[in-house]
Simulated assay, not measured.
Amino acid sequence: MKYQIVIAGVGGQGAVFLVKVLSIAASLAGQKCLGTENHGMSQRGGSVSCYVKLGDFYAPAIDEGQADLLIALEATEALRNLHYLKPNAGTVIVNATSEFPEVAYKVYHTDAFSKARNKAFPIDALNVYMLGFTLAKDPNFPFTCKEIEQAITKMNPKLAEKNINVLHQAINDAKAKA
């Protein structure tokens, strides 16, 4: 299997954390994985784009028109990174209101910012919320919930319970929205 994921956000939203979680999940699933962690402007609140490639790849960068999935932690960053998706075949999971513009891809959106502002979950778990939303909405997502839970636990055992609760909250919210 070959599968390519772009994770986009702005500094401080946890895109790099998601790369690490998905890399650990790939290891647990016995899949080959390459990932990048773009730190550039991440420490100053700037754009962050990270890549995860599963399968027989030799370079971690994703070329234009090659990604299967875009997980966007912020709506503007989704639009900025659409060019990475396979034409008419990519999937977008985006933290956005219902006013997100129509694009030539399958789009699933949730307003995670509003949920966090309303204290549905801690804002520092927005990235994990979006990962749970991805698990629920993208039928081609290459990981199981159990693999993601195990990866979250390996990544940070101290915060695992909180993050796994947020993951499941997102899955339940996504299913209720269906």
Rank of each mutant, 00 (worst) to 15 (best):
L22E: 05
Y105H: 15
N165Y: 07
A125K: 09
I148S: 15
A170L: 07
I5K: 04
L70P: 08
D63R: 13
K32E: 15
G35F: 05
I123V: 10
I123D: 01
A78M: 07
P87D: 00
Q13P: 13
N172L: 10
K53Q: 12
E99W: 11
D138E: 15
L79D: 11
S27P: 04
V52H: 13
F113P: 13
V6K: 14
Q31N: 14
A15E: 05
C145Y: 12
H83K: 03
D124C: 01
I93V: 07
S23K: 04
V166Y: 01
T97C: 12
K175V: 10
I123T: 03
K86N: 04
N156F: 11
E64S: 13
T91E: 09
F121C: 03
V19C: 03
Y58T: 12
G11N: 07
K177F: 13
A29S: 12
F57Y: 03
T91M: 09
D124R: 06
M155N: 08
A15V: 08
C50P: 06
K20W: 07
E102Y: 11
A72L: 07
I24D: 09
G9P: 06
C50M: 02
P122N: 02
V10W: 09
I93Y: 11
V128I: 07
G40S: 15
G45F: 02
N140R: 09
P122R: 01
A120C: 04
V16S: 12
S98K: 15
H109G: 14
A67Q: 04
L79C: 10
F121I: 04
L82G: 00
I152C: 06
V94H: 01
V166A: 00
S47C: 11
D173R: 04
N38F: 13
N38D: 11
K175G: 09
M1L: 13
L85W: 01
A120N: 03
H83M: 01
A178H: 14
F143H: 14
T110C: 15
A136G: 11
N81W: 00
P139Y: 08
L22H: 06
G55V: 12
N118T: 00
N95V: 09
K53M: 11
V103K: 15
G65F: 02
K137N: 08
G30N: 08
A112C: 04
A61Y: 11
L18V: 05
F141T: 02
Q169V: 03
R44H: 03
C50L: 01
G12Q: 03
A174Y: 05
K175T: 13
E77W: 00
K177I: 13
G40D: 11
A8V: 06
K162Q: 06
L28K: 10
G9D: 13
